[in-house]
Computed example of a mutant assay.
Amino acid sequence: MPMPDLDSYTPHRTVTDAAFEGVTVPGLLAEYFHRTDDHRVSSAGRYSMDGRDLLMAWGFTDEEHCRWSAVRDPAGFWHPETAGCPVVRVLRTGAAPDDPVSGLAVRAPTGEWITVDRGRVPVR
């Protein structure tokens, strides 16, 4: 399924310092959009840090997980859509589970990890 055209959706809510798997990520902006499709509501989420899009995930609000996702490379292109939720790792300043969160790493379909750390330019 191709990436959603967010112009055809209505903004639903925006979360600053959004969370992934229950962990707040400082600087992560999550924007959620909805659109009615027949008798269902389509949902799309766009995640960015430091003004740079990082990933999109979309599906339907009545499903527990996203149907599709796409990761944006630091060079500015979107990797092909993949089925299911993106694979994401929360980055911390150290190895301990209670060390401060510093960013995210998202796995591209190529197997590469796209990393965004707070206050730094995305690197591979």
Rank of each mutant, 00 (worst) to 15 (best):
V71G: 00
F77W: 15
T110K: 08
A96Y: 10
P74R: 00
D73N: 15
H34V: 13
P26F: 00
P97K: 11
G45I: 03
S102A: 15
G111Q: 03
V121S: 13
P122H: 07
L28A: 13
P100E: 13
V88N: 02
G22Q: 02
L54C: 01
T16C: 04
T115C: 12
P11I: 10
L29M: 11
E64Y: 04
V25N: 07
D99I: 04
P86W: 08
M3D: 08
Y32H: 04
G45T: 00
S43H: 00
F60H: 10
L104N: 07
V90F: 03
T10I: 07
S48Y: 06
W113A: 05
M56K: 08
S42L: 14
T14G: 03
L28P: 12
L104S: 13
D99S: 15
T93H: 12
S102K: 10
G111Y: 01
V90C: 01
L54M: 13
A18M: 03
H34K: 12
C66K: 02
F33E: 00
H65C: 00
W68P: 00
M56I: 15
P26Q: 13
T24K: 14
G59Q: 09
A19I: 02
D5T: 12
F60R: 01
F20T: 09
H79M: 06
R67M: 03
M56P: 05
Y9Q: 03
V71D: 08
T82N: 04
D7L: 10
V23I: 15
T82S: 12
A96H: 11
A19S: 15
T110L: 11
A18K: 02
M3Q: 14
C85Q: 14
R92K: 05
T24I: 13
G119A: 05
A95I: 09
D7V: 03
D7W: 09
H79W: 11
R72Y: 08
D17E: 01
Y9H: 04
A108E: 14
G119M: 02
G111H: 02
P74E: 08
Y9S: 03
R107S: 08
G27D: 12
V90I: 15
